[in-house]
Design a binder for these strands. Sequence first.
DNA 1: AAGGTGACAGTTT
DNA 2: TAAACTGCCACCT
Length: 111
Amino acid sequence: MVQKDFFKDVYEVVRLIPEGRVTSYGAIARYLGATSGARMVGYAMNAAHSQIPYVPAHRVLNRNGLLTGKHHFGSENEMQSLLEFEGILVEKEQVVNFKSLFWDPNIELAV
DNA sequence: AAGGTGACAGTTT
DNA sequence: TAAACTGCCACCT
């Protein structure tokens, strides 16, 4: 399945996210060439929990910096706790200073 | 087999 | 400026 490679690549990129940094689904999708596949990235995250290598899905947020996927974690607080543990402040389901913490694979991993 | 859903994003009103 | 609509593509019922 080709999609699986896509999923695997998504996980790989997510694991490359440094601690204390966050990124968006769209950024990953674009990095993989699936500009319009942001939703696919989110869907891929759905299976992230089944991945053997830990996938810091909590570092992946939407374009607005909102913890949209918190509900998919064990507990809604879990995602926020993980982020705060890494030094990322979360307020009202949104990452504080998201713009500065934003980690764009297209830039960081580019060339 | 067909229709609906969704861890998003960009554009338009 | 904020809210709403549409586009996208894979998965589920």
